[in-house]
Computed example of a mutant assay.
Amino acid sequence: MTMRRGRWWAAGLLVTGVWTSTPSVWAQGAPGKAATPDKGAAAAPATPTPTPAPSPADADKESARLFEDAKKAHKAFQWDKARDAALAAFKLKPDPAYGLILGQSELQTGKPRDAAEHLELFVREAKSATAIEKQTAQKLLDDAKLKLGTLIIKVNVEGADVSIDGKAVGRSPLVAPLFVDPGSHEVEVKKFGFDPGKELLAVAPATESEMEFALAALPAEPETKQPEPPKKEEPKPPPLPSPKWRTYGMIGGAGLTVIGLGLGVGLTMMANGKSDEADQQLALLRQTTPTTSGLCGAGGFAPNAAGCAKLKDTLSSQDAYTNGAMVGYVIGGVAAIGTLGLFLLPRTPFGRKMMGVNVVPVVGGGQTGGMVVGSF
């Protein structure tokens, strides 16, 4: 205990000596004792409550003002006021140069872990600090570390989130050591796409532990295909009618077409033969009939009566053959159209409206032919 107290007084004398020689270093009282200002010293002004800065320039100005208050309280050994003012200034502007007064005030008010963090920041990043200030901060940091455990955490990948006891403390790589209170602590490191690492560590005061985490990359997950929506099955149409009647109809129509056309052609040839025969009979009658008499009829030449009767029969036969040929052609044409209609008729299921073609022959009344009637 004697040696420990002597070291504290030595540090206090060092800081006091620097304070009197340069305005950038401040006095330090003996730790563990309530520091009181000289009776003749003026009371330090109360630390004002910081207000949110409307702009970065105003924030810097307010931070500098608060730090001046912290220096005054520090010089008067008012550690609570010095810590509050320095911490408020640091929150507005995290300047590493604030770390010496802030860390010493925290150490004097029983916050060694906070003190170690700010003193380590001062030693590492305070560019404008003098060698004496750095030496003083290092001694105070060593005293704080006697009450704490120091962790140095290394991770094999960058950007991994590091947490201690569920509280985030930074991302890898960590440039500064971490300070924890003595006891058991759970350190967890995780990053998306990697298997997380977790370790439970018992920390003793004034010890330094180095932890290394090697995170293994997780295998790439296969792409999951979205299930296709079930296909809506359309109702199956009723079965098509049997095609036999179509086949039979087309066969019958084709046969009737051949018969009709054959009958028409045959009767046409016979009608032509009768026409030639009638021409010959008429020529014979003209040769035997005087020019002053008619050929046939009531005023005709009497000897021509038998020839005229024969000519009349020939002409009647010609007309009969001609009419028969016309009927044959009509029958063949109607059959051909019907056969073609059956061939082109779509196979529509029963129970639905069907397209149809009907051919109706027309004979008589001075007309001979066919009429096509259909529904579409």
Results as ranks from 00 to 15, higher is better:
303 P>M: 10
304 N>Q: 03
311 L>N: 05
349 P>C: 04
320 A>Y: 03
319 D>T: 06
296 C>W: 04
352 R>N: 12
300 G>V: 10
327 V>M: 10
316 S>F: 03
343 F>L: 08
335 A>W: 08
305 A>E: 15
316 S>M: 02
348 T>H: 12
316 S>V: 00
328 G>Y: 05
342 L>P: 06
347 R>I: 02
330 V>W: 00
303 P>V: 02
349 P>Q: 04
316 S>R: 10
298 A>I: 05
306 A>P: 01
307 G>Y: 10
316 S>P: 00
332 G>M: 07
295 L>K: 03
338 G>S: 07
334 V>C: 09
307 G>M: 09
296 C>V: 04
320 A>S: 11
347 R>L: 11
299 G>I: 01
332 G>I: 07
331 I>P: 01
326 M>F: 00
333 G>W: 10
312 K>E: 12
304 N>K: 05
309 A>I: 00
340 L>G: 12
347 R>G: 09
349 P>R: 06
347 R>K: 12
325 A>F: 09
342 L>G: 08
306 A>Y: 03
333 G>K: 07
298 A>R: 14
296 C>L: 10
325 A>Y: 09
335 A>N: 06
295 L>C: 02
301 F>N: 11
327 V>E: 09
352 R>H: 15
326 M>D: 11
304 N>M: 08
328 G>A: 13
310 K>E: 01
329 Y>K: 10
340 L>I: 10
306 A>V: 02
303 P>R: 11
316 S>W: 09
347 R>S: 14
308 C>H: 04
350 F>Y: 07
337 I>Y: 06
310 K>G: 00
328 G>N: 07
335 A>Y: 01
319 D>I: 00
321 Y>P: 01
308 C>L: 02
302 A>Y: 07
319 D>Q: 14
351 G>T: 07
329 Y>N: 14
301 F>K: 07
310 K>S: 01
346 P>N: 03
326 M>N: 11
353 K>S: 08
336 A>V: 03
336 A>Q: 14
319 D>L: 11
299 G>D: 15
321 Y>T: 05
302 A>W: 07
335 A>G: 08
321 Y>L: 08
307 G>H: 10
330 V>P: 04
351 G>C: 06
309 A>N: 06
310 K>T: 02
305 A>H: 13
353 K>G: 01
296 C>Y: 04
332 G>S: 10
352 R>D: 14
336 A>F: 15
313 D>S: 15
347 R>W: 13
323 N>I: 01
323 N>V: 00
333 G>H: 01
302 A>M: 07
304 N>Y: 07
348 T>Y: 12
328 G>F: 14
309 A>Q: 11
344 L>W: 14
322 T>L: 08
349 P>N: 06
329 Y>C: 03
337 I>C: 05
319 D>K: 13
320 A>L: 13
302 A>H: 11
306 A>S: 03
298 A>K: 15
339 T>M: 13
301 F>A: 03
299 G>P: 03
313 D>A: 14
341 G>M: 08
353 K>T: 08
300 G>C: 05
311 L>C: 03
334 V>K: 12
317 S>C: 00
305 A>G: 03
348 T>N: 12
341 G>R: 09
309 A>R: 04
339 T>A: 11
296 C>A: 06
324 G>I: 06
334 V>W: 04
352 R>Y: 13
311 L>I: 02
323 N>K: 08
351 G>D: 14
296 C>S: 04
313 D>P: 01
331 I>E: 11
339 T>G: 08
348 T>W: 08
302 A>N: 12
345 L>W: 10
